[in-house]
Nucleic acid binder design. Structure first.
Lengths: 127, 127
DNA sequence: CCTTGACCTTCCCCTTACTGGAGAGTTTAG
DNA sequence: CTAAACTCTCCAGTAAGGGGAAGGTCAAGG
């Protein structure tokens, strides 16, 4: 499989596949004579694993840890759970932050008449 | 006022004040003979305005627009409301995204025993 | 008068996780 | 045989600053 086939099979852009190879996250198992990266099913499965992990918002470094655990038959589920719980807390922190931003901004937007006059509670609040 | 006084008065780091001057968002009104940026109360008010706008998650370019409206006596509140509503929608989009991420990940974390065994529904889901 | 320490300046590199493009080599279809 | 499609490496850029170096400036203390 050349890189574009691996891209299609994994659902990642070609550039991203190449980037993951560059940073040593998911390397191409081999190269052709002309120097083309060659992927197999195992590598594609890793790429998919990373794509899904990234979709959960795990950082590249966390993906690296998760990928290591994915391939480690001697892993303990507690290690995985620790990383996932950490991410879950980050999500919850972000949710709380967004909620308070939302409430404040929604209040301001509601109280702004949005007409042709210059008077504006949003600007007043920011200034 | 030198830059560190403006920094304290505005609540922004010195580096940030300098950066905002560099990109032309809030320029220092003048320079001393030695080339030191000199700020006045008007400039500090703009810095505070930007700090609060950034806290709502407005981008630098949006801050630029808002700052223009802040200083424009002929503005219409509808222009302000349009920008704020756009940001509010982005926040709501992000909230929905985080909510579904949260639900999925929370489910996985809950179902993972987190013990010394390798079996792990989180890894299974990602792989 | 001199020095010391706190300021200030510009400049450049670093961060995240890619994305876009240039220039050059390779492969494949017609 | 050529043109298109594919691949390679390398460079630059993104948002919004942060860190730190090398060097100029200013005020206080001795």
């Amino acid at each position: 499989m050349n890189i574009s086939a691996a891209s299609k099979a994994s659902g990642l852009p070609v550039k991203t596949v190449r980037y993951y190879a560059d940073i040593g996250l998911v390397k191409a198992p081999s190269r052709s004579e002309a120097g083309y990266r060659t992927y197999d099913d195992v590598a594609v499965r890793k790429l998919v694993f990373v794509r899904r992990s990234r979709a959960f918002g795990f950082s590249i470094e966390e993906c690296r840890e998760l990928l290591d655990l994915y391939q480690d038959q001697d892993r303990t589920s507690s290690e995985v759970k620790r990383i996932a719980s950490k991410r879950l807390e980050e999500i919850e922190d972000k949710q709380r932050e967004l909620q308070s931003l939302h409430d404040e901004l929604a209040h301001l937007v509601t109280s702004c008449r949005g007409d042709h006059m210059p008077n504006c509670p949003i600007i007043d609040y920011l200034g």
